[in-house]
Design a protein around this nucleic acid. Sequence first.
DNA 1: TATTTATATCGCAATATTACGATATTAAAT
DNA 2: ATTTAATATCGTAATATTGCGATATAAATA
Lengths: 109, 109
Amino acid sequence: MGVTKTEIYNDEQNRLASLLKVLGHPARIAILQYIINQKACICNDLVEELGLAQATISQHLKELKSLGIIQGSIDGKSVCYCIDEKVWKEFQEDFNTFFNQEVKVNQCC
Amino acid sequence: MGVTKTEIYNDEQNRLASLLKVLGHPARIAILQYIINQKACICNDLVEELGLAQATISQHLKELKSLGIIQGSIDGKSVCYCIDEKVWKEFQEDFNTFFNQEVKVNQCC
DNA sequence: TATTTATATCGCAATATTACGATATTAAAT
DNA sequence: ATTTAATATCGTAATATTGCGATATAAATA
């Protein structure tokens, strides 16, 4: 046990849940907000900004990268991260499809 | 370690991350979709529908309830769950605020 | 070349999550 | 009153996540 049974859900459910899961950590929300607000790439200003160890920030960045929502480009000895607009927009659509669907009034509650 | 350092983030970041985290599991996505599609309350049709043990479904329902996004009302010996529209709409706004913000083009990537 | 700086990765400890069987609880049906 | 059915809760095993120090790597600088 302790293993999510992904095989019993459909692809859409698994995909959406994965996205939400990665975003479901305040450090990763903070990182995304920071990148968006800087309107530019950043390196590890995040270590100072957030107050987490460099290894920890790097790990969170890796997860965001693996999702595709950010991408990094090497710039000398530092790495600049930025939002991948294409992926960001895909995510917007996924979320909007799910959350902005109409919820009907129910009988019982 | 193993503990998220919530004290270093602001309330908005922690709140949004909590919401996303709860929704970041395919069983909970499937449960929400099922409730929405039935356009009515459900009981543990979910056990048969999803193929998870009754205890597991009950646990997922509890998490969704604690978020406030669903509510249950007792109906004889079963419990009917439904979306709490007010909370659902609050979440829609939170998500829209975050995800539908404009992301500017960056310099480096 | 040696040093410094920025980042990534490894390994590990602490903690959290997932899933489920067993058991409790409560209401309906017999 | 007993049985049945639906749900919740407890306890626990398996696994995942978080965070960090130590170390590796690679580029810039002295």
